[in-house]
């Protein structure tokens, strides 16, 4: 207990050196590397469950290391890494140019990829739409299923709230400059979005691949169904990276952990959870 407290103090001392953002007051740490340590990982709630599993898997390999994972969202993840208030920030989207500008020292490690699927409620009688149609539907321009080849009926758009990494990735990958309609029903998690789609006839939404099951109808985009095969073949267009960001190139325990994630065992965990492994 006492030793881990000391480690935390040393680590937090280290993190005070040269962080981006506002300077922090603190005592400089004693030099020397800390081999037996704690790694703090903060950020995206999409990456969080994956990171927790990876940390469990890693603790079996290297029991001396404690990985603590907490949420907060992609923006918080990037910010925490920039300010070095965490060793690793998680982000379920590309790192924005503005974020790199604020902190050029950031190093991005893509640990997996995740497709975003467009799903509809089971009563919808079409199997796919084009990406232009998807954009028009989510922007509120197309409002009836008959306009995209289905049986007439109002399209109810369900989306994630502002600030969500999934929403932000969908905005970038599908919407371009169009905005998601303000009239869309907004739900604060992938699970709540899926529940709403299940219970609302004529509804359409976007969710992470990890949440696909029989209860909703996956829509093909430009002919490609949301499957891992289609992502690997390059035919499914809506794919985002799951990133871990560090301040500078990682060293010591942090580097070992990231190495583990990108290695065979880590990527096996990624695949088992329904995400797409990254090949090096």
């Amino acid at each position: 207990m006492k030793r881990s407290t000391a480690v935390i103090i040393i680590l937090s001392g280290l993190t005070l050196l040269g962080a981006c953002g506002e300077a922090k007051v603190g005592t400089p740490a004693a030099d020397g590397t800390v081999e037996d340590a704690e790694i703090s990982v903060v950020g995206s709630t999409t990456v969080q469950p994956l990171a927790e599993l990876l940390s469990e898997a890693y603790e079996a390999v290297d029991p001396g290391v404690m990985v603590t994972v907490s949420g907060g969202g992609s923006s918080v993840g990037v910010k925490s890494a920039s300010e070095q208030s965490a060793d690793i920030g998680m982000a379920s989207r590309e790192i924005k140019e503005s974020e790199i500008q604020d902190c050029p020292e950031l190093v991005v490690h893509t640990i997996a990829r995740d497709g975003i699927a467009i799903v509809a409620s089971l009563d919808v009688d079409i199997d796919g739409i084009s990406i232009e149609q998807a954009r028009a539907i989510f922007a509120g321009g197309l409002t009836d299923w008959s306009e995209v080849g289905g049986t007439s009926g109002i399209i109810t758009v369900v989306a994630r709230e502002e600030g969500s990494g999934t929403r932000s990735a969908f905005q970038d990958l599908v919407m371009d400059d169009a905005l998601i309609s303000a009239a869309a029903i907004l739900q604060p998690s992938n699970g709540a979005v899926r529940t709403t789609v299940i219970s609302t006839p004529g509804s359409i939404a976007f969710i992470s691949f990890g949440y696909l099951d029989d209860s909703t109808k996956p829509m093909a985009i430009d002919g490609a169904l949301p499957t891992a095969e289609n992502v690997n073949a390059g035919s499914y267009p809506v794919v985002r990276p799951l990133n871990m960001v560090t301040y500078g190139e990682p060293t010591g325990t942090v580097a070992n952990w990231i190495e583990f994630i990108l290695g065979e065992d880590g990527q096996a965990v990624v695949a088992a959870e329904g995400y797409l492994p990254v090949t090096r």
Partner: peptide, 12 residues
């Protein structure tokens, strides 16, 4: 507040 606070930073 409840829907957005967990993701918000800065002026948001």
């Amino acid at each position: 507040v409840a829907v957005e606070i967990s993701y918000a930073t800065g002026i948001h």
